[in-house]
Simulated assay, not measured.
Amino acid sequence: MTPDEVAAFLATLPGCRQKGTRAVPAWYVANRIVARLVAHDELMIRCAFDVRERLVTEHPDTFGIPPAYEAHMKVQAMLYGDSGAIQSALREAWELQRKMAGRARPRPA
Rank of each mutant, 00 (worst) to 15 (best):
E5I: 00
V6G: 09
A7H: 07
A7P: 10
A7Q: 03
A8V: 02
A8M: 01
A8K: 01
F9I: 05
F9H: 09
L10E: 07
T12S: 13
T12G: 11
T12P: 10
L13Y: 10
G15M: 04
G15H: 03
C16N: 06
R17Y: 08
Q18W: 03
Q18A: 11
K19R: 14
K19L: 15
G20Y: 09
G20R: 12
T21V: 07
T21Y: 02
R22Y: 06
R22N: 13
A23C: 06
V24S: 15
P25D: 10
P25Q: 12
A26N: 04
A26L: 02
A26S: 08
A26M: 02
W27I: 09
W27D: 08
Y28P: 11
Y28M: 11
Y28S: 07
Y28C: 09
V29L: 09
V29H: 05
V29M: 01
A30N: 14
A30F: 12
N31H: 12
R32Y: 00
R32T: 02
R32D: 00
R32V: 00
V34I: 13
V34Q: 09
V34E: 09
V34S: 13
V34W: 07
A35F: 07
A35I: 03
R36P: 13
R36L: 15
R36Q: 15
R36F: 13
L37M: 04
V38P: 13
V38M: 14
V38K: 14
H40K: 10
D41S: 12
E42L: 11
E42S: 09
E42P: 05
L43D: 04
L43A: 10
I45Q: 10
C47E: 00
A48V: 03
D50T: 02
V51C: 12
V51Y: 14
R52Q: 09
R52M: 01
R52E: 03
R52S: 03
R54H: 14
V56L: 10
T57I: 04
E58N: 09
E58H: 08
H59Y: 06
H59P: 08
P60V: 04
P60Y: 00
D61R: 14
T62D: 06
T62W: 00
F63Q: 05
G64D: 03
G64M: 05
I65A: 03
P66A: 07
P66T: 04
P66M: 04
P67M: 11
P67V: 13
P67N: 11
P67D: 10
A68L: 11
Y69N: 02
Y69H: 04
Y69T: 03
E70D: 12
E70A: 15
H72K: 13
H72L: 14
M73H: 15
M73V: 13
K74S: 14
V75F: 02
V75Y: 01
V75N: 03
Q76I: 02
A77H: 06
M78L: 14
L79W: 01
L79D: 04
Y80R: 15
Y80N: 11
Y80G: 10
G81C: 05
D82F: 01
D82R: 01
D82K: 04
D82S: 06
S83T: 09
G84N: 13
G84D: 05
G84E: 06
G84Y: 04
